[in-house]
Amino acid sequence: MVMLMTRLAVAAALLSLPLTAQPAAATTATATAAADPMQVYGAWHCSDDACTWAKVRDLAAFDTANHWLVDRGDGRPSVNVVVLSFVNPLRLLDGTTDAGNAAGVPVGMNQQVVDYFTAHGIRVMLSIGGITYTGDWDTALARNGTLLGQKAAALAGRLGVGIEIDYENSSNPNLTGLQAFVTAYRAAHPYDASGADPTARLTIDVAAGDRWLSGIDQYATANWLTTANPVLDYANAMVPNKQPSASTAIANWQEHLDGKPTYSPAIPPLAPAKFTAGLYIAEGSQVRPECVNFANSVQQATGSWVRSAAPNGAGSTAGLLGFMFWAAEKPSTRGVTTAPPNGCAGGVGAGATAFAVPVPMPPLRQS
């Protein structure tokens, strides 16, 4: 995902769309019931303060703002994973305690918030980085990538969560330092194909296609995301600077399946089972159809492709792992919120029904 300022680069406003109830989703579900369900279907979560999580939330108020995530309208959750965004990597390395952080972790990312989701069968992860903290990633990795990985592993163990790497340096990423981070994390929490250990879930964000964050994309695809010797569980193909059309979205995601053989070094193809597709639900001043109107959404229009995309040089099974949505609650200071009266049960929740998303998340495909 792209944090804060890049999230604000949005297109012209759409007409407001009413919350769509379940019947539209039920029709789609009937038409697509024969397809394999998506395994990953989740949302990045920014709390109510534009992704800083700098205050402890009142749990009753938090539930009011986020109940759609745990109840799509029939008692079942709308998602099977939530990624709390963002932890500042340099503060984590330094163990900073200040007005918004305790020992390097945003105070709002606490056990009660984690338990709120896990009590409903929703997996929880913490995202380290975001574009605002790119420079802090650079500093932290240059200083001690191994120690940063160890601290991330300890944080995961303390809260019972997974970790997402969101390092958005497209020009000169510190891949040596990032390798040290991953090695240290995996020393504490080895890769777990069963998915039973939540702390072993370690993922990375890449761009919507292969043409941005190319260095990180190339290194991660070649070294960490192979099906023969997996190190990371999967990559998230993030959202571009505005919501794409269905055709543009598919073209972006296809780049990961194809790789970039003419690049130097070449980006190898990525197995469909090793990445998810990202879409907006809240974008600047707009609540998208992806949030409130599944029938008119990009996830509805691209869902068949996402579930059936064929391998093209990597992997042996068809279909991406699923969708991730940017972002629950309030991803920008002057932007829209997914809290009531909005809520995304009619978009994300209806999609969970249409795509027969399993909750809790099952063991992920490995090939």
Rank of each mutant, 00 (worst) to 15 (best):
residue 3 M to E: 14
residue 4 L to S: 10
residue 15 L to I: 03
residue 23 P to H: 12
residue 23 P to D: 11
residue 37 P to S: 07
residue 38 M to T: 10
residue 43 A to G: 03
residue 47 S to A: 15
residue 53 W to Q: 07
residue 54 A to V: 07
residue 59 L to E: 12
residue 60 A to R: 15
residue 66 N to P: 10
residue 69 L to T: 03
residue 73 G to N: 09
residue 79 V to S: 02
residue 87 V to W: 10
residue 91 R to P: 01
residue 92 L to K: 12
residue 107 V to I: 15
residue 117 F to D: 04
residue 129 G to T: 04
residue 137 W to Y: 07
residue 152 A to W: 03
residue 161 V to D: 01
residue 161 V to Y: 00
residue 163 I to T: 07
residue 163 I to N: 01
residue 164 E to I: 04
residue 170 S to V: 02
residue 172 N to E: 12
residue 179 Q to T: 15
residue 181 F to T: 03
residue 183 T to H: 04
residue 188 A to S: 15
residue 188 A to P: 07
residue 199 T to L: 05
residue 200 A to E: 02
residue 206 V to P: 00
residue 210 D to S: 10
residue 218 Q to M: 13
residue 220 A to M: 02
residue 221 T to C: 03
residue 227 T to R: 01
residue 239 V to A: 08
residue 243 Q to W: 02
residue 244 P to V: 07
residue 260 K to A: 11
residue 260 K to E: 01
residue 260 K to L: 12
residue 261 P to N: 06
residue 267 I to K: 05
residue 268 P to K: 15
residue 270 L to K: 07
residue 273 A to W: 06
residue 274 K to P: 00
residue 280 Y to E: 05
residue 283 E to Q: 14
residue 287 V to D: 08
residue 301 A to R: 14
residue 301 A to N: 11
residue 306 V to S: 02
residue 307 R to H: 11
residue 310 A to E: 14
residue 313 G to H: 12
residue 315 G to N: 08
residue 320 L to G: 02
residue 327 A to Q: 12
residue 330 K to G: 03
residue 335 G to V: 03
residue 340 P to S: 11
residue 342 N to Y: 10
residue 345 A to Q: 04
residue 350 A to M: 00
residue 351 G to P: 08
residue 361 M to Y: 09
residue 362 P to Q: 09
